[in-house]
């Protein structure tokens, strides 16, 4: 089971490791703070508790930078 991750220049297929794999889990893996990005699932804004489904396109938009 795979999903597509789009983040900055990144556009890649990734494995869904378990059934309850959420965007929050993905952010933790990428070491990104939920405070600095917003998430889209198949083009629609969603909260980080959203479970990632097979063939989803997950786009992360960084909205806060350090400076």
């Amino acid at each position: 089971m795979e999903f597509t991750l789009k983040f900055k220049d990144l556009n890649e297929k990734r494995e869904i490791p378990n059934d309850d794999y959420t965007i929050k889990d993905l952010l933790n893996e990428l070491e990104l703070s939920a405070q600095t990005v917003v998430s889209k699932q198949n083009g629609e804004l969603v909260i980080e508790d959203t479970v990632i489904q097979e063939d989803d396109e997950i786009q992360l938009v960084q909205i806060i930078y350090g400076g």
Partner: peptide
């Protein structure tokens, strides 16, 4: 963070980048 989400939700064109 809410301002960042507001511009994305409203589809306003903004410059998201770090100086």
């Amino acid at each position: 963070r809410e301002i960042g989400l507001y511009v994305v939700a409203k589809e306003l064109e903004v410059h998201f980048d770090s100086c």
